Amino acid sequence: MYYSQTAVHSVTGLLRGIAATWQDWATAGVPGMDPTTTEGLGAVLAHLADQLDVQCIAKADGQN
């Protein structure tokens, strides 16, 4: 299956944006948000975005 780099870039940008927002909320102490859980979920989304970038680069380089 082929995914354009633009589409992957959009998805990774969205994931990183959500992660950053959640981490901001955790830091700000937003009521109802458990800081540890929120920061952990944000880190998972950021890691997922990184993995998508790596896979896209590998695909573009013909490694996969």
Rank of each mutant, 00 (worst) to 15 (best):
Lys59Gly: 11
Leu45Arg: 00
Pro31Ser: 13
Ala46Ile: 06
Thr12Phe: 11
Gln51Ser: 12
Gly62Arg: 06
Gly32Lys: 08
Leu15Cys: 06
Gln5Glu: 14
Lys59Phe: 11
Thr21Arg: 14
Thr36Lys: 11
Leu52Asn: 04
Trp25Pro: 02
Thr21Ser: 15
Ile18Glu: 00
Ala58Gln: 03
Gly13Asn: 15
Pro31Thr: 01
Leu14Lys: 14
Ser4Val: 10
Leu15Phe: 00
Val44Pro: 11
His9Met: 15
Thr38Gly: 04
Ala7Lys: 06
Trp25His: 06
Val30Leu: 13
Ala20Arg: 12
Pro31Ile: 06
Gly42Ser: 00
Trp22Gln: 11
Ala28Met: 02
Ala49Phe: 07
Gln51Lys: 15
Trp25Met: 09
His9Gly: 01
Ser4Met: 06
Arg16Ile: 03
Val44Glu: 01
Leu45Gln: 04
Val30Met: 06
Ser10Lys: 14
Thr12Gly: 12
Glu39Val: 01
Tyr3Gln: 13
Ala49Trp: 01
Ala20Glu: 07
Ser4Gly: 12
Ala7Pro: 10
Ala7Phe: 13
Val54Ala: 12
Leu15Gln: 01
Gln23Met: 08
Met1Phe: 03
Thr21Met: 08
Trp22Gly: 06
Gly13Trp: 04
Ala7Asn: 10
Ala49Asp: 00
Met1Glu: 09
Cys56Trp: 00
Glu39Phe: 09
Ala28Gly: 09
His47Cys: 14
Gln23Leu: 07
Thr36His: 11
Met1Leu: 13
Gln23Pro: 00
Thr38Ala: 10
Thr27Ala: 15
Ile57His: 13
Gly62Asn: 10
Ala19Trp: 00
Val44Met: 14
Gln63Trp: 05
Gly13Leu: 10
Trp25Phe: 08
Asp53Ile: 02
Gly40Asn: 04
Ile57Thr: 10
Ser4Arg: 06
Ala58Pro: 00
Val30Ala: 05
Asp53Asn: 01
Thr38Asp: 01
Met1His: 11
Ser10Tyr: 05
Gln51Ile: 14
Leu45Met: 15
Ala26Asn: 00
Thr36Gln: 03
Val44Cys: 11
Gly17Arg: 11
Tyr3Asn: 04
Thr6Asp: 02
Gln51Tyr: 07
Thr21His: 09
Asp50Arg: 04
Ala19Glu: 01
Ser4Cys: 12
Gln55Trp: 01
Asp34Cys: 03
Met1Ala: 01
Ser10Gln: 09
Ile18Pro: 02
Ser4Ile: 07
Gly62Asp: 05
Gly62Ile: 00
Pro35Thr: 07
Thr21Pro: 06
Ala19Pro: 05
Val8Thr: 10
Ala28Ser: 13
Leu48Asn: 09
His47Arg: 10
Gly13Ile: 12
Gly17Ile: 11
